[in-house]
Simulated assay, not measured.
Amino acid sequence: MEDLPEKLRRNVMFIGTLILSTWIFDLKIKVSETVFGFIDIGNITPIKIWISLLVALVYFSLRHIYSDQVKSDFKLMKVEHQTLRIRNAYRTLNKRMRIYFKTGLLPTWLPQLIPDSAADLFPFKNPMFKIRVSSLDSSCAAGAISLSYKVLGKNGEEYSSMAGTNLYDFTLSRHERMKIFIASTIRTATFSKAAVDVLAPFIIASTGLIICVSKLLILLIAK
């Protein structure tokens, strides 16, 4: 039964795609009184067909969602998403420091590194710096960093600091936190195999469910 999760996923995709196709291409369900041309059937209506599709879609979707494979994929998605958030937070910190050495615009969480008397030396050409993240909270929005840098002013004076001598607590702005979260979510949803295996059936099934319910409501109202 190792291929059961894959079969469930295919069933969800098939039924959901079938329902979606009837809506996109405006397909009409034509009731026939025979199956294969020789088996007589009766009392089949479009309402019963839509109910059957809805029941099948809900059943296979629930079986798929609660399968061990999907639970495992969800855990893998969370790990990949958190890894991307950490990476994007590190890039954001690097960007903030690069802006500081180029423009003199100091992040609110960072003390004055370059003396006020040297403020007219900005921008520093080819600033060299390295950030080490010492701690980071689960939201990747706050933590502590150590910073080493070496910059050369216009007057030839050098300003430098070695990593490990000081730790700086930081808190990213709400805009930066949202940007990190959205970018990490989009990348996880589009480049993670686990995310595709989970989200594609979920989106198709949800769309099919909405179409089924709306079709049934229309048929019941018109009845």
Rank of each mutant, 00 (worst) to 15 (best):
M1R: 11
M1C: 10
D3R: 09
L4C: 06
P5Q: 02
R9T: 12
N11E: 12
V12A: 05
M13F: 13
M13K: 14
I15Y: 04
L20E: 03
S21P: 03
W23S: 12
F25N: 08
D26H: 12
D26R: 11
D26S: 11
K28L: 03
K30T: 10
K30W: 08
V31R: 08
S32F: 09
S32M: 13
G37E: 12
G37S: 13
G37K: 13
G37R: 12
D40P: 09
I41V: 15
N43F: 11
K48R: 12
K48G: 15
W50V: 00
L53R: 03
L54Q: 06
A56W: 08
A56E: 08
A56H: 04
L57F: 10
L57G: 06
V58T: 15
Y59R: 05
Y59E: 09
Y59D: 11
F60I: 12
R63W: 10
S67D: 15
D68N: 14
K71A: 06
S72L: 04
S72R: 03
D73M: 01
D73A: 00
K75S: 07
L76Q: 10
K78M: 13
Q82Y: 06
Q82E: 06
Q82D: 11
L84K: 12
L84R: 14
A89T: 12
A89C: 14
Y90E: 13
L93S: 03
L93H: 02
N94P: 05
I99Q: 15
Y100M: 06
Y100R: 04
F101N: 07
T103K: 04
G104R: 01
L106A: 05
T108Y: 05
T108A: 09
L110T: 04
P111N: 09
S117P: 02
A118M: 10
D120S: 13
P123S: 03
K125Y: 04
N126M: 10
P127C: 04
P127F: 05
K130T: 08
I131V: 14
I131E: 10
R132A: 01
S134P: 02
S135Y: 04
S135H: 04
S138L: 02
S139N: 12
C140N: 06
A144R: 15
S146V: 13
L147K: 07
S148E: 15
S148D: 11
S148P: 07
S148Y: 00
K150P: 03
G156N: 11
E157K: 11
E158M: 08
S160T: 07
A163E: 15
G164W: 07
N166L: 00
Y168C: 08
F170M: 00
T171P: 01
S173W: 05
R174K: 12
R177K: 11
M178V: 06
A183R: 11
S184Y: 03
I186Y: 04
I186G: 02
A189E: 02
T190G: 01
F191I: 01
F191C: 03
S192F: 00
S192I: 00
K193P: 05
A195S: 15
D197W: 11
D197G: 02
L199E: 04
A200I: 12
P201N: 08
I204Y: 07
I204D: 06
A205P: 07
S206Y: 08
T207V: 04
I210M: 01
I211Q: 08
V213I: 15
V213F: 12
S214E: 14
S214D: 15
L219P: 10
